[in-house]
Design a protein around this nucleic acid. Structure first.
Length: 203
DNA sequence: CAACGTGATTCCTTACATCA
DNA sequence: CTGATGTAAGGAATCACGTT
């Protein structure tokens, strides 16, 4: 786990959702579900009886250096931690905590960004799907019109000269004659039967 | 007073070292 | 070599304080 790059860390955590905990023993699952112990409020001054120091806001200079260091590298090796701590006049533990929080918040920000990017992509895709479905509908209408026209032409020819062969009156049909007509305008039955699906997306 | 930002804590897992 | 145990580090969840 310690060797994973920061960028990978973000996404890998998603892949393992449910995997690790699914493999826990029953007692481990129980431990996982156990409510966390509540911390006592520490309204008192620094260094109270529990040894908890009063929360300190870091100075702007300290923040800048920490941010700069975080940009360089999200992971914090102990050597770098000690150096940073001494440069900043902080406890190494504070530096470690700061990095931990920073990584967590960086990750959640990344997740939010990724979510909104995917959302935009999804919306674009839905619009495009809608456009394509409309196009299919229009093409089907055109096809229908063409079939009607062909039908009327065919009827006109056959009523004019009932005894004559089609190859004479309708040379454009070539060697297929009337039997070929269905194949020329063949449209698979189940190819498209839910042209208005997209309407339901917004219902 | 509520919402928010953030330092700190707790619990848990994982990696690694040591030992019998 | 192998399994048990201890330890350090880090992630996730949460708390709680200070600020807006």
């Amino acid at each position: 786990m310690n060797q994973i790059d920061d960028d990978q860390m973000v996404l890998i955590s998603q892949y393992y959702t449910g995997v690790v905990y699914d493999q826990l023993l029953p007692e481990q699952v129980e431990a996982k579900a156990r409510p966390r112990r509540r911390r006592k409020k520490n309204k008192g001054e620094a260094g109270s009886c529990s040894g908890v120091m009063r929360k300190r806001k870091l100075s702007e200079q300290q923040m800048n250096l920490l941010e700069q260091s975080f940009e360089d590298e999200h992971k914090l090796e102990s050597e770098r931690k000690d150096k940073l701590a001494s440069d900043l006049g902080l406890d190494p533990r504070q530096v470690a905590v700061w990095f931990q929080n920073r990584r967590a918040r960086w990750k959640s920000k990344k997740m939010e960004e990724e979510y909104s990017k995917l959302k935009t992509q999804h919306e674009t895709t839905v619009v495009e799907k809608c456009r394509l479905e409309n196009e299919v509908l229009k093409l089907k209408e055109q096809l229908c019109e063409a079939e009607k026209e062909l039908q009327s032409l065919t009827e006109r020819f056959s009523s004019k000269s009932p005894s004559s062969s089609l190859s004479m009156d309708a040379p454009f049909l070539g060697e297929f004659g009337m039997e070929g007509l269905e194949n020329v305008f063949y449209v698979p039955e189940n190819n498209y039967n839910n042209g208005y699906d997209w309407v339901n997306l917004y219902a």
